[in-house]
Amino acid sequence: MSDTAIRLGTRRSKLAMAQSGLVARDLERISGRTVELVQITSEGDTNRASLASLGGTGVFATRLREALAAGECDLLVHSLKDLPVAPAPGLVIQATPARADARDIVITRDGTPLDAMPTGARVGTGSPRRIAQVLRANPGVETHDLRGNIDSRMGRVRDGELDAVVLAAAGIGRIDADGSTIGGLHAEHRDLVSWPTAAGQAALAIEARQDADPQLLAWIAELDDPVTRFAVTLERELLGAIEAGCHAPVGVHATVDDHEVRVRADVYGAEAASDVSEDVSVPLISLDALIEGYIQGRGSGEAVDRDGLIARAREIGSDLARRLLDNGAADIVTREAPTS
């Protein structure tokens, strides 16, 4: 390709710019080319309604993908949890770099754990999954819808409007290298076994056009982490099968360790008694060979979705989704499905 700068499309938020900057520096190192950040405003950045009312997943991605398809930029960096599970026509997720801390954290003024907060304490979150998890941990608290950037969310704790907010640990880590963002507040990390997070949380997705210059695709592919790709593919496969077009709150996290994958998945009902969970460990036979085959085949934009590693992730995710549905999640999905 030519010697012009590589254009990386990103949202304008502080977090999006920080994580896009991380990818830009790595891509400059690999390619020897300058990478420019192209700031793009999405509906999710300008509309202050709740994310659920805006359609949830995908509200931040649509405008960015339109810009990529139109040639306004050469690649995109997304928070993977913000992407719909269905692929976008003509585009490919060419890399998922190594995942950061996937846990959620509860931010408070005084360090009181969520489980010990008094009745009526105000906890901010706009996520249906997090709302369910907060109320499972402490049924006496009140949840309040929450929008805005990380600074403004924590500001509502500092000024006493809220007693706590629930945020992603990865987001804090990417913008808060010196600890100044939390500054004086307290962070309680929630365990992924009892509090699985959103499918793909803490992972980045680097997306390009399928017909992009093969050299650009090859450079991007070098940023891909096979273990992260496996885990998030499994999570997103499970999510897609569970949701089936609905908005049921689902938490799922997969951890690969010592040639097995442990998966915790929860589908949250209207009350705790109707929740459906799976917590399983699945052996990964010939994992090293699967990873090696994946690495050899990922140079093209399509190969990453056809090899054995990805097929195995999808198989496990699909199997677990069927078990959840058979064990009662189908009733939650039906109840939560929007009427039209």
Rank of each mutant, 00 (worst) to 15 (best):
I175P: 08
I175C: 10
D176F: 00
D176C: 08
D176K: 03
D176N: 13
A177S: 14
D178I: 02
D178M: 07
D178R: 04
D178L: 06
G179A: 02
G179I: 09
S180P: 06
S180D: 15
S180H: 01
S180Y: 04
S180G: 04
S180A: 08
T181E: 13
T181A: 12
I182T: 12
G183Q: 04
G183T: 11
G183N: 14
G183D: 11
G183I: 12
G184N: 10
G184F: 09
L185M: 03
L185V: 04
L185N: 06
L185D: 02
L185K: 05
H186C: 05
H186W: 02
H186A: 13
A187L: 05
A187N: 09
A187Q: 11
E188R: 10
E188L: 13
H189G: 12
H189Q: 15
H189W: 15
H189K: 13
D191N: 15
D191R: 09
L192Q: 05
V193G: 12
V193W: 10
S194P: 13
S194T: 13
P196L: 07
P196D: 14
P196M: 09
T197L: 09
T197G: 10
A198F: 06
A198E: 14
A198M: 14
A198L: 08
A199V: 10
A199N: 02
G200I: 14
G200Y: 01
G200P: 04
Q201N: 15
Q201H: 08
Q201C: 15
A202P: 07
A203F: 10
A203V: 10
L204W: 06
L204C: 08
L204H: 06
A205V: 07
A205L: 11
I206M: 07
I206D: 00
I206E: 01
I206S: 00
I206F: 08
E207F: 03
E207N: 04
E207P: 15
E207C: 06
A208K: 02
A208L: 09
R209S: 11
R209Y: 13
R209W: 06
Q210L: 13
Q210S: 10
Q210D: 15
D211P: 14
D211S: 13
A212E: 11
D213K: 01
D213P: 04
P214H: 10
P214G: 09
Q215F: 13
Q215Y: 15
L216D: 05
L216A: 08
L216H: 03
L217C: 01
A218E: 09
A218I: 07
W219G: 07
W219D: 09
W219A: 08
I220M: 02
A221P: 07
E222M: 14
E222P: 06
L223A: 01
L223I: 07
L223R: 03
L223P: 00
D224K: 11
D225F: 14
D225W: 11
D225Y: 06
D225P: 15
P226Q: 02
P226E: 00
P226K: 11
V227S: 06
V227Q: 07
V227D: 04
V227F: 01
V227C: 02
T228H: 03
T228Q: 13
T228D: 05
T228L: 05
T228Y: 03
R229D: 00
R229V: 08
R229H: 15
R229Q: 08
R229K: 15
F230W: 10
F230G: 02
F230T: 04
F230C: 03
A231K: 02
A231D: 10
A231T: 07
V232R: 08
V232P: 12
V232N: 08
V232E: 09
V232S: 06
V232F: 05
V232L: 12
